[in-house]
């Protein structure tokens, strides 16, 4: 085993000398942090901030396990640089429950068995939250189109559709 030095473990991600500072609001909390230019948003959230509810499933912008809301719109955080969100608002799965009350989408996923292994679930729920904010009463077809960028391997999607319909109903058509 060829090796060099003992590890200098100061940060879970590299930060070069000339690191950039970004100011970002995550789940209503302001952060002012140094990041390397190439840091992916998903690694910033998971490895730096410990918000591990946002998952990584594919690396090529196909699976949607890393979906977060960027200024209210769902995006794939594995394909966004942390520096790109400087000055913007991020919402992750950890920000759905407010004041000890679950978001209707979270209730819907539990009530309709919209999850099995739970790995795609945070991303799927973030997409659902954004859908219902835009379209409070989506049809099955509209739901299926909206979640078509989020892969699920366990549920066959049926109960995810029902979960989102359940949430739409409990939201009373309001987001």
């Amino acid at each position: 085993m060829a090796s060099t030095a003992i590890p200098r473990l100061t940060s879970p991600l590299p930060i070069k000398g000339a690191a950039r500072r970004i100011h970002v609001t995550i789940n209503e909390v302001d952060f002012d942090m140094a990041v390397e230019d190439r840091t992916l948003l998903v690694h910033f959230l998971r490895d730096v901030l410990g918000l591990t509810g946002t998952h990584i499933g594919c690396d090529t912008t196909h699976c949607g396990a890393c979906t977060v809301l960027l200024d209210g719109k769902p995006v794939k955080s594995c394909t966004v640089l942390a520096v790109q969100v400087d000055g913007r608002k991020i919402r992750t799965v950890e920000g759905l429950e407010t004041g000890g009350k679950l978001h209707p989408v979270q209730d819907g996923f539990a009530a309709e068995h919209g999850l099995q292994c739970g790995f795609c679930t945070p991303g799927m729920m973030m997409t659902a939250v954004a859908l219902l904010a835009k379209n409070p009463n989506p049809s099955e077809d509209e739901i299926r189109r909206a979640i078509s960028g989020n892969l699920c391997r366990c549920t066959g999607y049926m109960n995810i559709v029902k979960a989102i319909q359940h949430a739409a109903k409990t939201q009373g058509g309001k987001s």
Binding site: T67, L70, K73, P74, T79, G149
Partner: peptide
Amino acid sequence: IADPLVRNM
């Protein structure tokens, strides 16, 4: 074009 999430970026 791609999927709804990609279209947001």
